[in-house]
């Protein structure tokens, strides 16, 4: 299934990530998962939250550069080889995964992989079999 991920541009300097998290906390936004892609000078914070549209507005109001991006959420059973099975299906269909990170959910045994792909419509139908369970 599809989720809206919030991506935030951040300078690679102390205190900036804290400001983002504080802004979200003040807006009563819950983080399900968060990850950072970093370069020497800046990073991109990617997060799955309970209220993405609100989160985007809060961060923009605070002067951050935030953007909502469609990503795929694919449930992966907590057993050896299950991720590899999903990925080989993606590979056979010629789907390139730009980046990927994991999210756990309370009350669920299986984790969910968050994946960014170029052609999300095609990818969703191919990988959807493993994305039936309710998510966030």
């Amino acid at each position: 299934m599809r989720l809206k991920q919030i991506s935030v541009f951040l300078e690679n300097t102390p205190g900036h990530l804290e400001k983002v998290c504080q802004a979200l906390a003040d807006g009563n936004i819950n983080l399900s998962t968060i990850t950072i892609a970093e370069t020497r000078d800046y990073g991109i914070v990617r997060a799955i939250v309970d209220k993405p549209e609100e989160a985007e507005k809060i961060l923009r109001d605070k002067g951050f550069f935030a953007k909502l991006v469609d990503v795929l959420a694919v449930e992966v059973s907590d057993t050896p080889g299950s991720l590899s099975k999903i990925l080989s299906r993606a590979a056979m269909a010629g789907i390139n995964i730009e980046y990927m990170y994991a999210m756990t959910r309370p009350m669920h045994d299986n984790p969910v992989m968050i994946m960014a792909v170029k052609n999300i419509d095609a990818a969703e139908s191919i990988l959807s079999e493993s994305a039936k369970a309710p998510l966030v």
Binding site: Q5, S7, F9, A37, T39, I44, R46, K67, V69, A116
Partner: peptide
């Protein structure tokens, strides 16, 4: 800014 590091 389009979410990816490579574009930036």
């Amino acid at each position: 800014f389009s979410d990816g590091v490579s574009q930036l």
